[in-house]
Structures are given as C-alpha cells and as structure tokens.
Amino acid sequence: MQVTLKIRRFNPEKDKEPWWGEYKFEAEPTDRLLDALNHVKWYVDGTLTYRRSCAHGVCGSDAMLINGQNGLACKLLLKNLGSKITVEPMRGFRVIKDLLVDMEAFFDKYRRMKPYFITHSPVPEKERLQSVEERQRFDDTTKCILCGACTTSCPSFWANPDYVGPAAIVNAHRFVFDSRDEGKDERLSVLALNEGVWRCRTIFNCVEACPRGINVTRAIGEIKKALLLRKI
C-alpha cells in the first residue's frame, strides 16, 4: 500500500519552529508504524529521531501521538491506521528532537511513588507468601511499561505539569494494594498532596491511551477511596 507519513519534526539546533515532514512510500499493510518510521530513517532521512528498543510492545520506548491518539508505534499496523498517518511527539513533555521527548520529570514522579517493596516486619525464613486472590487485587497495574501514553493524554497534566500524573499513580497502586508491602502510608501521603490524585478529574483519556489496556482511572479511583478510608 501507498503510505503518506506526516511527521512533526523539530531540531532545536536548526529549527525555530517545529515543522511537518511528509514522506510517501510503498509499504506492506501488515507493517507496523515503527517499520514505517525505520524506513524513513534508514532510507530517506537519517536525521529523523525517535526512541525504540524492544519493538514488541514491552519496553514502552516508542509511545507517540499517532493520528491524534497516544499509542506505541510498534503495536499499530499500517492497515489499521489508514494511508495518511500523522505522527507527533507526546504532548506535555519537552521535545528534545523530533519524536524524542524529555522524560526525566516523568521518571522523577515515578520515583517519588517509591516503586519498590517496603517492609518493616522481620524477614521470614522463606519468601513472603501471597494468595492468588491477593495477587489478583493489583494484577491490572502490574502491566504498566512506563511508556508515558496515559500521562501525556491527560488534560490535567497538560494544564499543570506538576501533577504526578496517571502513570505514577498506577505504579503506586501496584504497591499500595500488594498484601506483602508495608509502605502503604508513605505512598498514600505523597498521593494526598496537592499535586497528587486530587488533580485527577476522571476524564478517562488515560484509559483510552494505555497500550496495555490498564483501567487507569479505576486505579486512581481506588487510591482516592483508600485515602478516604485512611481518614475515617
């Protein structure tokens, strides 16, 4: 099929303003968008810059704004995107070059959630056991690959970059509802702050954006409920 790829280009060393690069070429309908981007980079314009690593929807490197919706370039097939495809960097992050964005602040917020096990009780002789039901409680939020698609689709985040954002909350949820973890209070205290969960206006963009199908708004709602139950 004939594909027209419209890519939002920006090189801060050369360009004053971002511009649209248009690339027309022949591709297989079963090619992924990432293959199309690779085609441009390898055969048309080597300066095109974007992140990609595993290329199989697991590492979360190639999240971008595709036809106006956040998604992973490696998980979307050209036949499902149409013959005219627009690709832009994720919104709300500083563009370093082309589709490459600065995710430092994003990971900083992730780290603020203390995304590791916290235990105070003495170490048991064997491993800390957990029932199937207890594991199921937070199963959905273990799927996050930190691609940033949810956070950069969130209007509350666009309006206020200090908002921790859905991705950080999802990763806090993963530990808050883990029966083995004992750092619930520390994490909830961070989420109760002014830039925490209360900035969420339940817009549901994050749920649509998540390439892993995580019910993000539900997870945020459960954190809000936990904060309320902690107070009463």
């Binding site: 917020k109 109760a192 209360w198």
Partner: peptide
Amino acid sequence: MNGAGRPRPQGGIDLWAWIF
C-alpha cells in the same frame, strides 16, 4: 518541573472537596 522547591500543602481540603 518536579515541584521540589514549591510548598506542598497537605491535600486535606481536596479530599473533603472530592467527597462533597
């Protein structure tokens, strides 16, 4: 961007506003 230098009020009002 990470808000480290800004005063961070505890979200007491926000919790009750949400419930309200």
